[in-house]
């Protein structure tokens, strides 16, 4: 009896399997898939590189700045990088379709560049990273963040120290 009920229900519902690749596959919003890197929001703290258990993330200094590479064929999609990133610069999208032909295996990389810039104060060459000002009190305005950003680490520290805190 029990079995007949299941049978009738399944007959009515049709196949439970997904039609993929002919149709869409079940993909929840929170699915942890392909890595996305936003160089503009990156503080260059390299925490993600340190916590990545697969050593899939590599930062490298180049003449143009600091490059970010995440090798999707090494990544285990654990989400440690996103979890520990202080700025949400690294994010796991719900794109899980990473199939590719063998010839493309070295291109399965999320690449980013944090460019060099010239410090507006001292003229030194430094990375244009997002400033680490989350804990600054009172919080910085958008203009202030942009001003901090335009400086090298030393001048950033000086700027923040000399910042006039309204009473």
């Amino acid at each position: 009896m029990n079995f007949l009920t299941i049978f009738a229900r399944n007959l009515k519902q049709g196949p439970q399997t997904e039609a993929f690749p002919l149709g869409p596959a079940f993909t929840p919003d929170r699915l942890r898939g392909r890595i996305e890197f936003k160089a503009e929001s990156c503080e260059g703290c390299r925490i993600c590189e340190r916590v990545c258990p697969a050593n899939a993330i590599r930062f490298a200094k180049t003449p143009d700045g600091m490059t970010f590479d995440c090798w999707h064929n090494t990544c285990v999609f654990c989400g440690n990088c996103e979890f520990y990133c202080p700025t949400d610069a690294i994010h796991q999208t719900n794109d899980w379709d990473l199939s590719h032909v063998n010839a493309d295996k070295f291109d399965m990389v999320e690449h980013g560049l944090i460019p060099n810039q010239t410090c507006v104060d001292c003229g030194a060459t430094a990375l244009n990273t997002a400033p680490m000002v989350k804990n600054a009190k009172p919080p910085l305005s958008t203009e202030e963040v942009a001003e901090v950003r335009a400086r090298c680490p030393k001048c950033r520290a000086k700027y923040l120290k000399n910042r006039k805190v309204p009473a």
């Binding site: 079940f26 929840p28 919003d29 929170r30 699915l31 942890r32 999609f77 989400g79 796991q92 719900n94």
Partner: peptide, 9 residues
Amino acid sequence: DMLESIFGN
């Protein structure tokens, strides 16, 4: 499906 929807895997 519940695990995938809540935790992503």
